Simulated assay, not measured.
Amino acid sequence: MTTTHADATTVRSTTAVAGARESARTFLEGLRRPPVAPDAADTVVLVVSELVTNALRHGGGTCTLDLTAHPDTIEVAVHDASPQPPHVRTPDLHGSSGGFGWVMVNRLARATAVTSRTCGGKTVSAVLTR
């Protein structure tokens, strides 16, 4: 099994999440065998956006994005400094405070996991169909 990694460290800024999405697109475009289907690529980018946004908002202001390509899947892993796992919130249907993200990620992914890091913080990962 061959895996390819793309790492990007992101600091909270007005362009941080856009940069993470661009890193994901570049990573996916570089995969040739097998290539990633356009719908699957859009899903990966959406999950990257959500996990990075949550890490920056709730995880201490910095995070590291790690993308791994497996033969049939793409793993998105976001590492941050907070030990607090993501949790389901009641969606804000009339405001701008969100609440849809973790549910969405869990519905889009084959599997999700939250693991504590020995150096502190956590890793939130999602495995998506390639």
Rank of each mutant, 00 (worst) to 15 (best):
M1F: 11
T2S: 10
T2M: 09
T3F: 15
T3P: 00
T3V: 14
T3Q: 09
D7M: 06
T9D: 02
T9N: 02
T10V: 15
T10I: 15
R12Y: 00
S13I: 04
T14I: 02
T15H: 06
T15N: 03
T15M: 01
A16C: 04
A16L: 03
A16Y: 03
A16I: 06
A16R: 07
A18W: 00
A18C: 02
A18L: 11
G19L: 12
A20E: 00
E22L: 15
S23K: 10
S23W: 00
S23I: 07
R25W: 09
T26D: 12
T26N: 07
L28Y: 12
E29R: 15
E29S: 14
G30Y: 13
G30Q: 10
G30E: 03
L31C: 03
L31Q: 10
R32Q: 07
R33A: 05
R33G: 00
P34H: 10
P35L: 14
P35A: 15
A37V: 07
D39E: 15
D39G: 11
A41P: 05
D42N: 14
V44M: 09
V44H: 02
V45Y: 03
V45D: 01
L46C: 04
V47G: 06
V48E: 02
V48F: 01
V48I: 05
S49N: 11
E50F: 11
E50A: 07
L51P: 03
L51F: 03
T53D: 05
N54H: 10
N54T: 05
A55L: 11
A55D: 09
L56A: 14
R57C: 02
R57D: 03
H58Q: 06
G60E: 10
G61V: 11
G61T: 13
T62S: 14
T62D: 02
T62W: 00
T62K: 14
T64V: 11
L65G: 10
L65V: 09
D66Q: 06
D66C: 05
D66K: 06
T68Y: 01
T68N: 01
T68H: 02
A69H: 06
A69Q: 04
H70P: 00
P71W: 12
P71F: 13
P71Y: 13
D72K: 15
D72I: 12
D72W: 14
I74K: 03
I74D: 00
I74Y: 01
E75I: 12
A77M: 05
V78F: 12
H79M: 07
A81W: 04
A81Q: 09
A81E: 02
S82M: 04
P83M: 08
Q84P: 00
Q84T: 15
H87G: 07
H87L: 09
H87M: 11
V88H: 13
P91L: 13
L93Q: 09
L93N: 01
L93R: 13
H94Q: 09
H94R: 15
H94L: 14
S97P: 00
G98P: 04
G99W: 13
W102E: 09
V103P: 01
V103Q: 08
M104F: 13
V105E: 04
R107A: 13
A111P: 00
A111M: 04
V114K: 08
T115I: 09
R117W: 08
R117Q: 14
T118N: 06
T118F: 03
C119L: 08
C119E: 07
C119K: 05
G121C: 08
V124C: 08
V124I: 10
S125V: 05
A126L: 09
L128A: 06
T129P: 03
R130F: 14
R130G: 11
